[in-house]
Design a protein around this nucleic acid. Structure first.
Lengths: 339, 339
DNA sequence: TTGAAAGCGCTAACAG
DNA sequence: CTGTTAGCGCTTTCAA
């Protein structure tokens, strides 16, 4: 099958290549007669013509490509391994983009190297970045002058759009829920607490709730390692070794809540009978564990939809920085008991 | 920041654009003097030049882009939602591709529409397809004359490369493991059994093992719905409603094994005390559930690595169809008991 | 309402 | 060892 170009179509339809370009791109201000248009379309169909995006990008400086940057947990290894969260998000972004005629160029950050090279090389029309990255890394992207949306991060930037949730509120909701069930000794289980990270905010929310209740934030109730099933299991061992003074745990990700429950179970500690657990995310994992996990629900798919919308708005001329904070709710299941 | 082109570099280095192109692309057969080369490289660095891939693709017919097609479970919704399997695979593919200087163009199939349009439009240099698709859909891709690798599917094609596992063997291994633990009433839990699909093969392996053991394949022991946590939970209800004659279940995906265990648990049936369960995949879920799931292990990351290798080999001239069957093993955990 | 023509930035003969 | 040159396939002014 030989490549068919706009020229072939033009010949077949008896028009110029310019005309073909006009009808294909159907700009609202274009003035092509219906007959000509029909003739061109017919030729397109018969020749099975598909425009070459490299050529059109070269000329028009538009690629219809959106760069998506997803964190890589271990360099050279899986970037999203234990967290179905990313699968959901990715899928929603891809779908929303495709509906707008855009495709997704997927990358994990190349070991400290800047994304700017890829972005400029490929000429992406917009960038979606998931998670927290070093500030310099992000700042470089300004020079590209294309829309950037940051998902789930708290860097403040005057230009980049953001979509996320109110993690501090979420942390507070989780903790207050536990409080409302009579718990007073509430542990906090999370990955590293980093500046600008969501975990930091959730931790603040945890502290807010405790303080409002007149309760102290005890260091011995803090378990911060990595966002992984394994670390949560380990935390379970620590908890038990220390005598398990806490009656409830706020785990900042479902994957950790599930790990904790598993670890506790192996040590003969029952959830929620001996200890209560609340998670965060409400992804597939929450329903999967036993007991099913009471958790903070967030709408992952909506994050993707919104991110694409922000990019599209920017591309079509909107200049304001946009921000979206998606709502949160408590989903009661079986892992918390009233005491 | 104004765009800097190869021309700017050429001027700055006092050479022609051709020379710049030569040193940038550093072909082995090229003969540029070290001095010239150094001068060019210096200019590249100083001007912060990054080649425009649209322009080079246009000329060279090479995009360094690999199209990745991932199944979409529900049109318009998540494509990989309940299955961390895809996250792992995706990540491995992206990483391997990047090491070879390729990027990943991610797509979910557009509702029955062909992928060929995207492939031709973007000029991808190779395609990786995960999962089973209609034959006509796949056949169209032949006309592109670019390497295609199929992951986890059994369509036989004289050209496309394949990477997968021996699902029939896997089914047999799982069933024989159960048999070796004294089980005789073994149920089969899966998604729809489709031609060319992996589930079909695993089912054959199940039957193989039963037959070798002189046992019948009982219809009432077959539970086939969808590959989801929810269906597995439902199957648990059916099992119990029917009196739970089986003593063990082979679930063809961890996600189903986990769902089954959860569903059974809710009904007061204990795993492995009352009934044993073996899964398939050995992803993160297997370690997450309680009891931890005995399952068939497969190396997901290796699938991605191999797929990229096949594409690279093809691109660099290899003409043979390549096939890789990755090894399987039984991972014993806690969900099967000897009776 | 349409066409001619000038490139976009790069590659690859080919010539020197 | 390096430069000249002719496009790749498309968009878009400008003129007709």
């Amino acid at each position: 099958m030989k490549r068919v170009s706009i020229k072939d179509v033009a010949e077949a339809a008896g028009v110029s290549t310019a005309t073909v370009s006009y009808v294909i791109n159907a700009r609202p201000d274009q003035t092509i007669s219906p007959e000509t248009s029909a003739r061109v379309l017919k030729a397109v169909r018969e020749l099975n013509y598909i425009p070459n995006s490299a050529a059109s990008s070269l000329k028009s400086k538009k690629t219809n490509l959106i760069g998506l940057v997803i964190p890589q947990t271990e360099p050279g290894k899986e970037f999203m391994f234990s967290n179905p969260f990313y699968g959901d998000l990715l899928s929603s972004i891809e779908y929303s983009a495709r509906r707008e005629g855009y495709h997704i160029l997927l990358s994990a950050p190349d070991n400290g190297q800047s994304y700017i090279t890829i972005a400029r090389n490929r000429g992406v029309d917009g960038i979606i970045i998931v998670g927290a990255y070093p500030n310099e890394w992000l700042d470089e992207l300004h020079s590209l002058s294309i829309p950037v949306v940051l998902i789930d991060t708290y860097v403040k930037d005057p230009v980049y759009h953001t979509v996320g949730i109110d993690d501090r509120l979420g942390g507070r909701m989780a903790t207050e829920y536990l409080l409302s069930r009579g718990h007073r000794d509430i542990a906090f289980l999370s990955g590293q607490i980093e500046e600008h990270g969501v975990v930091h905010k959730r931790f603040q929310g945890y502290k807010d709730a405790l303080e409002s209740a007149g309760l102290p934030v005890r260091d011995e109730y803090l378990y911060t390692g990595s966002i992984s099933f394994e670390y949560a299991e380990q935390a379970a061992r620590e908890m038990v070794a220390k005598g398990c003074r806490e009656t409830a745990v706020f785990a900042t990700a479902d994957v950790m809540g599930v790990g904790l429950i598993g670890g506790l179970h192996n040590l003969g500690v029952r959830v929620p009978d001996d200890i209560s657990v609340i998670g965060f995310d409400d992804g597939i994992l929450a329903k999967m564990c036993n007991p099913r996990l009471t958790t903070i629900h967030q709408d992952i798919a909506e994050k993707g939809v919104t991110a694409i919308r922000f990019i599209m708005d920017s591309i079509s001329g909107a200049t304001d920085k946009q921000e979206k904070i998606l709502p949160l709710s408590v989903v009661e299941r079986q892992s918390v008991r009233r005491i």
